[in-house]
Design a binder for these strands. Sequence first.
RNA 1: GCUCAAGUGGCGGAAUUGGUAGACGCGCUGGAUUCAAAAUCCAGUUCUUUCGAGAGUGUGGGUUCGAUUCCCACCUUGAGUACCA
Length: 937
Amino acid sequence: MSYDFNTIEAKWQTYWADKGTFKAENYSNKPKYYVLDMFPYPSGAGLHVGHPLGYIASDIYARYKRHKGFNVLHPQGYDSFGLPAEQYAIQTGQHPAITTKENIARYREQLDRIGFSFDWSREVKTSDPTFYKWTQWIFTELFNSWYDKDADKARAISELEKLFSEEGNTKVKAVCDEEVTLFTAEAWNGFSSKEKQEIVLKYRLTYLAETEVNWCPQLGTVLANDEIVNGVSERGGYPVIRKKMTQWSMRISAYAQRLLDGLHTIDWPQPLKDSQTNWIGRSEGASVTFRVKDHNEVIEVFTTRPDTIFGVSFMTLAPEHELVAKITTPEQKAAVDEYIEATAKRSERDRMADVKTISGVFTGAYAEHPFTKEPVPIWIGDYVLAGYGTGAVMAVPCGDQRDYDFAKHFGIEIPNIFEGVDISQEAFADKEKTVIANSDFLNGLNYKKAVKTAIYELEKLGQGEGKINYRLRDAVFSRQRYWGEPFPVYYVDGMPQMIDLKHLPIELPEVEKYLPTETGEPPLGRADVWAWDTEKNEVVPNSLINYTTIFPLELNTMPGWAGSSYYFNRYMDPNNEDEIFSQEAINYWKEVDLYIGGSEHATGHLLYARFWQKFLFDKGIVPVDEFAKKLINQGMILGTSAIVYRISGTNKYVSKGLKDQYDAEELRVDVSLVNFSDELDLNGLKNWQPQFKDAEFELENGKYIVGREVEKMSKRWYNVVNPDGVCDQYGADSLRLYEMFLGPLEQAKPWNTAGITGVHGFLKKLWKLYHNGEEFVVGETAPTKDNLKTLHKTIKKVEEDIESFSFNTSVSTFMIAVNELTAQKCNSKVILEPLLVLISPYAPHIAEELWNKLGHTTSISTTAFPVFDESYLVESTKQYPISFNGKMRFTMELSLDLSKDDIEAAVMAHEKTQQQLAGRTPKKIIVVPGKIVNIVG
RNA sequence: GCUCAAGUGGCGGAAUUGGUAGACGCGCUGGAUUCAAAAUCCAGUUCUUUCGAGAGUGUGGGUUCGAUUCCCACCUUGAGUACCA
């Protein structure tokens, strides 16, 4: 019987599903292990061969851990809210839920064919009301919490209100909005309910605020900072402008320091940690207050170099800074207004593209230096960003290149406050070599001491303090979209009210169209049944709104990252209707042990998920404050596009080798039209698209050879390879082996279908080893020394490979093992059984089939991983006493079957040996023919 | 500019407490089988060579008996990030 992979694979996939082989129990005597993939967004295009790469790796690890005696949780689900389904709905009118359902069915079919060991009984979908009930609940929990800086954790709002009523807000150290005014307990108790709500809102971990947001007119929605790339939207590449809107925000900035600290406790890739560190952007320094002369105003600046305070020769405000209008003198007003208008016109993108141009204008006003009391001119300039720090800087031209360039350009004085440094050409920014001069009490001090002293003196004056600044901004949480989680929020007198857990989920209402309304409201503004009855506690028609018992509901929906910020915990107890998950379940599984997914989520999903986990930890809902111990970024699988060359203005195509003789343009054609040797199927091309119907070709050696380009797999390049096709032709086991064999997991690598014959050949050889024609044959004789050596070599290597996630080299190891056993004519059951266990994580179907043929009635996945025995590898080593030059004696360890004479001759013949051994008495020399390999001692 | 990662045959890539560089696969060459092709099997395949050997892991140095591996400088490529005060 030949290796009929299609039948075998279908058979075992059905078996696993029927028997529930991979169903995980929440209680076990075995140690637990949680292997997770980043769940997919089910797009209409289906899976291409790049998608399963990470899933195959995690599946291998999950299956390996089962062999190692772990109770393994390996679930899968869908991140099923999102833009593509909504945009399809806008175009076709089809409900996104239908599109999503179809796409999920297609994904499931494709995933099932690859033979993953997912526990599908735990499947979650973020767009499923039974799931987003808990997304809504977490939102209300965040709303009902504030961040206490003293306790360094989130606490209940009720406790904050109690503090306010007892002592006002003067002593409370909380993370809150900047413009909070101080009040006493008496004042608090005298406030109206609405005033109280307005104040508390400034403290909540999710809050409503008038914020300047990134508005994308084409998409009709706001975008988070990480959804913008180079000033245009990540999706679609549309321009983004700044606009003020009332939006929900998440106070992630409260967790900035803990998000930073937590990175040291988790085993994640360094580049990913670096980009999170960068995104959080902690910088240590001081805030300094400058009085504005002739005005009752102060300018607060943040600086990382308080030691250079005596080098300040001007100040710069961002053009958007609120003080600009107040302090500009009448003489300068025209110039300032003109400059502000010019800046506003320039898009974010232009501003970034053109960093070199120095621009700015003097306001006419002066500030007072805190120590010297000298006047400091106040300028505005667009090199100062309104969104960072306080939007104002104290300019020290001798110590900062941008300040230096600005001062040079406008002829502002550049005082030198560094000892022994020439600043005639450029600023001096080397902290290590800094010695301060011309600076009163800071003279002669180095950087560290000067910083300390300056802050101390500023504090004495009451004009500054040490401060840590973070780049991390609060995350906008509202989207003007239909296909997302609705907020469990209604409004009474303009103030948001949360709907209690017992009435959740608040399900998405039906709408006629999925576009924003004519008045610019989000799509939910089109819903007719979208009001909240506070007596019946249910959603009722808008027509009933009376503002006494029935109120309007929130029209925004949540962003894509809401559901993905905690789904990994929900898998632990996914069908629980009463709780997000039981405490028993979360305390058993605790956290993800291994998380595999793409690096593109570094500053989005992976940061928000850590934030929510820390919040849930503060609330005592989860037992650990980092959700994933280890994370691996799998690399992308790239496509290999095929290119034909058309002579410009004609319908003639020339083969790759001839293209330089013509003025030819490049066209991409479907990769399935090209064989392994880059030869194009001419008739296939003619039938592929009408434009090629009458194509003429100029061939080389009778063939049309295409050009190749490695680039991202995408429909528009016609380079997508579908896993179903690979499974049809070679089988899922070949696909799995080949995806691993392609190269290291973390690296980006091009797909090349030609190479798959290699791993497919291996499976055929493995099959042949057990079969004599149609008959299944297994040897009952005892294994030889060589057989055992091959086996244990393989056990050792495969175990090391899996533990270090070097799945690519394991495939080679299997090939070597099967080649050796074939050469040894070994089909001994004693060898083959453990070998199958080794192979089963990679190629589970064939392993299961042969395991079954060996007479086992249980799944191979329940079998223990074979134990490595070193004695089979070192047995052939012998030790010989050797004399050298008639003086020294040492021992030789021979790992090859060579005679003593051979070795001695080899050592003597080797010229370098005498130098190497001069004056040394080695204990042991490892030798191979002609060379000394290792001298020990 | 800054940060990080990586440079090994025609190609993907092996090789870690520093010890036979190029495993394994693709491709290519030759052979067997076949009327022929596909499939399969066997042998060869870093470069140079006067067939003795010599050179060789981006470049130049260093440490070592010995370096793809460790150290220094440089070059190249990729990724991320950027007027962050």
